[in-house]
Design a protein around this nucleic acid. Structure first.
Lengths: 158, 158
DNA sequence: TTGGAATGTCAACAAGGCTGACGTATTCTG
DNA sequence: CAGAATACGTCAGCCTTGTTGACATTCCAA
């Protein structure tokens, strides 16, 4: 499966990789950040919208574990999204303690705008680097995740 | 150079890539964050230490453009690093308005600890994914950067 | 010698993390 | 059925790290 004879990566290689993550992440968030600022939202709102969109009807606890923040922190963000009519809350059908989250049409409109801006950059990078590079990109990133995060990755991406 | 017949990447592909960046970046910062917290520092301190280490003697303006923050924001971080004896400032030799930044032994000790923790994860991911994947990883990330950031990437990595 | 560049610093503010504590439904369990 | 546990919301306060705006100092260069 893995290479049996893995070359040792030099300090320089690793530093390059570390800086690549740093600089690329900046580019990665830049376009949506601009749009968010126009609407008076932040990156935290984007993340919430993204994962509610990916898995409509998910409950608060699940979203918390995906985002890896405290409920107080999420609540602040969720509160504004609900009050602004981007997210809609409903009582769980199985367990009525749970709250199911879903995007409204207004929420769908915003996430579409954000996603398209971000996807455009990723699409351009994928096109520039080529399909084989994309496979490598995904493989390294997946290996870099924590195992508990890896469970969420791919979830609802079937 | 680039593929002449680039396949279109589906929405699903792009979403996977976007989430890969999100989850992987979390893993990427996690280990150094723990160490930083023990010392009472934050991610901003790590970034400053990293780039001062990479290019010892660089001036404030250069560091500002690499980090992409305001001078007030950087100054706060730099102030504590200087006061705590991790960074040492000297007046520029050519232009005496400039301040050259360098790490002290104490600063070198901390950045070594941080870098090693972060490099360990990258090294493990590289080993798991294989050398060809690493090349793709770098290619995609480099293509994802803003062009002005790309100038800094690789700088002093010669 | 004067304008602009590089730097430092004060003050105020906002986003978005955190902890701790508490309240209220609702469900599970002994 | 009573009490424990779970899911969620919220109040209060704190921290880091970003922002803007204003202003002082030092020094280079035309």
């Amino acid at each position: 499966m893995a290479e049996t004879l893995d070359p040792l990566h030099s300090e320089k290689d690793l530093r390059r990789g570390i800086e690549a993550m740093f600089f690329a992440y900046r580019g990665f968030t830049q376009d949506p950040d601009r749009i968010l600022a126009q609407h008076g939202y932040g990156r935290a709102h984007h993340r919430a919208l993204h994962f509610i969109h990916r898995e409509s009807g998910l409950n608060v606890n699940t979203l918390l574990s995906i985002l890896g923040v405290t409920k107080q922190s999420l609540n602040r963000v969720l509160r504004t999204l609900i009050d602004h009519g981007l997210v809609e809350v409903s009582v769980g059908t199985e367990d009525r303690r749970e709250r199911n989250l879903a995007l409204t049409d207004k929420g769908l409109t915003l996430i579409a705008e954000l996603s398209e801006a971000q996807a455009a950059r990723v699409r351009a990078a994928y096109a520039a680097a080529g399909p084989q590079a994309v496979a490598g990109f995904e493989a390294v990133l997946e290996a870099m995740m924590d195992s508990d995060l890896r469970d969420h990755y791919g979830r609802a991406n079937r």
